[in-house]
Design a binder for these strands. Structure first.
Length: 871
RNA sequence: GGGCCCGUAGCUCAACGGUAGAGCGCCGCCCUUACAAGGCGGAGGUCGCAGGAUCAACACCUGCCGGGCCCACCA
């Protein structure tokens, strides 16, 4: 796609992002630049997308994450890497099933009315109709993903990876089935892993109940129906005589033993604990140690199933009912009292989780977690920012076995078959067909496990399953390990740790070299965005209004490693203004014939202002490159923003106007202009792809900045002298401008004549100065003089009608006060530093210079005040 | 109950052992031939509090106050 170079003087004075972005993206897609070529000789650079949920839509957090990833990928592509950004989506097990069930609910039917096959069919339909919205929206943002490699966690290839992984881990004893206490959501009707449970401190009531001679306390009265013991600490003298005896369990007519167990804290409450092995993980462990029965009294819907008067009540109806019954019997010792305690909630639907004994599949995490921890400890994978390492280690070092079976219909069905004798058959390899006969006894009529796998099981394989694993594909060889993972710190455990576990288990190397953990997007007051706060924003609305580049710049600019990012529409407006500034500045360059075809003159051949901007440019190139490499996107943006706006636009373009008007000087200045804009646009491209593409094509006539070379700093253009000269010029101009402002000299009025301070080094600069400061003429004078006062004294110009002498005296007095303060500060510091003689020489010198400057200022101010007095 | 982070200009946030920065907001002046989505000038901070080590701290250490986050099977 070759963009026809537009008429150079045909650019409107405002940038309209909406006008160009869609076409540009379509052109990029057609060009094939997004595709990664396995056969290329370039070094590989790869990132797999953190797959968004199929049922979601692009929110501001995605926009943030995608901006960072795209910036990384685009820069690497320009820098000569074969860059791959692999897109895709996650089937989002519970989440997606819930969404579809809700839709069915509006039709008045449940998934059970449909049956499993029909329900799963519906989910696929839903996915086809609504899924992938995010991936389509990504085009709006400009994400340069390789669409030819798009994957889905339920597609055939990934299903094969899941089945292979399960088979291998089962064979290795890393996946097993067991009856355990698991977290159960009575609403979603499925088991959950530990991290799918959110704990919150909820108000409960601690009720003390008399069990014969003992008193126990509980927040969950209803579980007492399933108690099979009371436990006390073995060393607790108060109860030593009761150990081994039995007490009566109220309301049930059952007698239960008193057991001694170390898990009991004798200092808590009465030191006696009721034990409900089927409904509490602690109690289950106690039960195991003492061979207690494990009767379940609450079913999967949270309903009491113990026979008796409470049977059929919901757990929350049963609680007060049982309490009342106990009170009637006089068994409530103390009145119930409010008690704040941690309660687990389902992270999908917020229902209070019910610990429940059931038979589930688990991953034995110990060896995997160790490998995942080691990979970070020994530096094969690096976490950014490093503070996140502690969090990561705390998790992998203390992980419990992972419950991976879910009682859902949407997901990867567990690849396990049972015969009527209950033997388990697991196909060892993904390419084996579903087994027809039992591997143990040879019976046929096998039945597949009804459950599906935790959605994070398949996500955990993402970095290599998407590249073709278990097949040994070229993609896998070329792009694994992936170079970086860019993801929010909120899913370190859900996802990052799991990928590390699976990756180090199944492949010879880690899944990624760098992990960049970004923060959450917040509103302008630093508040977390949530629907209930009403502060969520639709990123695409901002894209519509201000353009994708403005949104991207805003997000990238706010990115500090690991930090949260506040955004507001005003920030985006500011970024939009920046795109417009770039637009107009480039337009100025184009109108003035900026050229990228003329060779850039060597430093000696240039005017100081050009030496200066090129010197600054090469510094900026080096800095920005380093910031990109360190994932310091905030600084990338900050540096480029200031260079472009404050230095290039506010000073260089103004300074360039004079040489551009001079036929002898213009060609060189045009070459410098062309070069500076060319480099600037390339540096900005990873963050602001659209506006830079538009402008870069106009400027250079090139095909696409996407595939332009990444700039490299050229230290031969470093020019200290020019930087100092321009700094001095800026000081003087600012002083004159300040004078004008103080003296209320109209901007349109030209001061009749004035002398300027500073060692302004050459005639062109004096002319520039006259222009920038609105002077009729200017001459050099010793530095440091208030311009007009100097003019009066030195040139004899009579400004008495123009100058407000009192205002000028006030200004000088103020300057003098500042100089006095500065002299004192520098002097104190110098005395201090010299006294002990430990300060580095550089510091002493610098401080001496400060002191000298302050003293010189004071002398000049005194002279000027004296001159004014004689006026 | 453990662990982590943060308290810097009105707001949101940077920086850093050696003279406090940005964006937005605010005040004043300007439609100056790239840009009013702009230009120029300016105001505004005892860097949460109290100690300590250092020639020198906003920056390092300790304690306190205030705010946030993560992990957690004490009934």
């Amino acid at each position: 796609m070759t963009a026809p170079p537009a008429e150079r003087n045909d650019l409107p004075s405002q940038y309209d992002a909406g006008l160009v972005e869609a076409d540009i993206y379509a052109g990029w897609e057609r060009s094939g630049y997004f595709l990664a070529d396995v056969a290329s000789r370039k070094p590989a650079y790869s990132i797999v997308i953190p797959p968004p949920n199929v049922n979601g839509s692009l929110h501001i957090g995605h926009a943030f994450e995608h901006t960072l990833i795209d910036a990384i990928i685009r820069r690497k592509r320009m820098a000569g890497f074969e860059a791959l950004w692999l897109p895709g989506m996650d089937h989002a097990g519970i989440s997606m099933q819930n969404v579809v069930e809700r839709h069915l609910g509006t039709e008045g039917i449940s998934r059970h009315d449909l049956g499993r096959a029909a329900f799963v069919e519906r989910v696929w339909e839903y996915k086809a109709n609504y899924g992938g919205a995010i991936l389509r929206q990504m085009r709006r943002l400009g994400s340069s993903v390789d669409w030819s490699r798009e994957r889905f966690t339920m597609d055939a290839g990934l299903s094969r990876a899941v089945r292979t992984m399960f088979g291998r881990m089962y064979a290795d004893g890393l996946i097993y089935r067991a009856e355990r206490i698991i977290n159960w959501c009575p609403r979603c009707m499925t088991a959950l892993s530990d991290i799918e449970v959110e704990h919150s401190d909820d108000e409960g009531e601690l009720v003390s109940i008399r069990y014969g001679p003992l008193t126990v306390a509980t927040t969950r009265v209803e579980t007492m129906l399933g108690d099979t013991a009371v436990a006390v600490h073995p060393d607790d003298e108060r109860y030593a005589h009761l150990i081994g005896t039995e007490v009566e369990l109220p309301l049930t007519g059952r007698r239960i033993p008193v057991v001694a167990d170390d898990a009991v804290d004798p200092a808590f409450g009465t030191g006696a604990v009721k034990v409900t092995p089927a409904h509490d993980p602690n109690d289950f462990a106690i039960g195991q140690r003492h061979g207690l029965a494990t009767p379940s009294v609450i079913n999967e819907r949270g309903v009491i199933i113990a026979s008796g008067p409470f049977q059929g009540l919901d757990r929350y109806e049963a609680r007060p009912a049982i309490t009342a019954a106990l009170r009637e019997l006089g068994l409530i010792v103390a009145e119930k009292r409010p008690y704040l305690h941690a309660v687990g909630h389902c992270d999908r639907c917020k229902t209070v989780v019910e610990p429940r004994l059931s038979k589930q599949w688990f991953v034995a995490v110990a060896p995997l977690a160790k490998a995942a921890g080691d990979a970070v400890r020994d530096g094969r994978t690096t976490l950014h920012p490093p503070e996140m390492r502690d969090r990561y280690f705390a998790w992998v070092d203390n992980m419990h076995d992972w419950c991976i079976s879910r009682q859902l219909w949407w997901g990867h069905r567990i690849p396990v078959w049972y015969c009527s004798d209950g033997h388990v058959t697991v196909p060892g390899d993904a390419d084996q067909p579903d087994p027809l006969t039992c591997g143990t006894c040879g019976l046929d009529g096998l039945r597949q496990d009804d459950d599906v796998l935790d959605t994070w099981f398949s996500s955990g394989l993402w970095p290599f399953s998407t590249l073709g694993w278990p097949a040994e594909t070229e993609d896998l060889a070329r792009f694994y390990p992936t170079s970086a993972l860019v993801v929010g710190y909120d899913i370190i455990f859900f996802w990052v740790a799991r990928m590390m576990m699976f990756g180090t288990y199944a492949l010879p190397d880690v899944p990624f070299r760098d992990v960049l953990l970004h923060g959450l997007v917040r509103d302008s007051r630093g508040k977390k965005m949530s629907k209930s706060w009403g502060n969520v924003v639709d990123p695409l609305e901002w894209v519509d209004r201000y353009g994708a580049d403005a949104l991207r710049f805003t997000l990238a600019r706010g990115a500090n490693p690991g930090g949260d990012v506040p955004v507001s529409e005003e920030w985006v407006q500011g970024a939009r203004n920046f795109t417009n500034k770039l637009w107009n500045a480039t337009r100025f360059a184009l109108l003035n014939g900026a050229s990228t075809t003329e060779p850039l003159p060597a430093p000696e051949e240039l005017d100081p202002e050009s030496d200066w901007i090129l010197s600054r440019l090469q510094t900026v190139v080096a800095e920005v490159d380093g910031y990109y490499e360190a994932y310091e996107f905030g600084r990338v943006c900050e540096t480029l923003f200031h260079f472009a706006w404050d230095e290039l636009c506010d000073w260089y373009l103004e300074l360039a106007k004079l040489p551009l008007a001079n036929p002898d000087l213009a060609p060189r200045t045009r070459a410098v202009l062309g070069h500076v804009f060319d480099v600037l646009l390339r540096l900005l491209h990873p963050v602001m792809p659209f506006v830079t593409e538009t402008l870069w094509r106009q400027l250079t006539g090139g095909e696409s900045v996407m595939v332009a070379e990444w700039p490299v700093a050229d230290p031969s253009y470093a020019h200290r002298g020019a930087e100092e000269a321009i700094a001095e010029l800026q000081d003087v101009v600012t002083a004159v401008r300040r004078f004008r402002s103080d003296q209320r000299v109209k901007p349109s009025a030209t001061l009749p004549a004035v002398a300027v301070g500073g060692s302004v080094p050459f005639p062109a600069q004096v002319a520039a100065l006259a222009r920038l400061a609105g002077l009729g003429s200017a001459e050099q004078l010793p530095p440091g003089w208030s311009p007009v006062v100097a003019g009066r004294v030195s040139l004899g110009v009579d400004l008495s009608g123009v100058i407000d002498l009192a205002a000028e005296r006030a200004r000088l007095a103020k300057d003098r006060a500042a100089a006095v303060k500065e002299r004192e500060s520098a002097s104190a510091k110098l005395t201090n530093a010299q006294f002990v003689g430990k300060a580095p020489a550089a510091v002493i010198d610098k401080t001496k210079a400060r002191l000298g400057a302050a003293e010189a200022d004071l002398a000049r101010i005194a002279d000027q005040l004296a001159a004014l007095r004689s006026e």
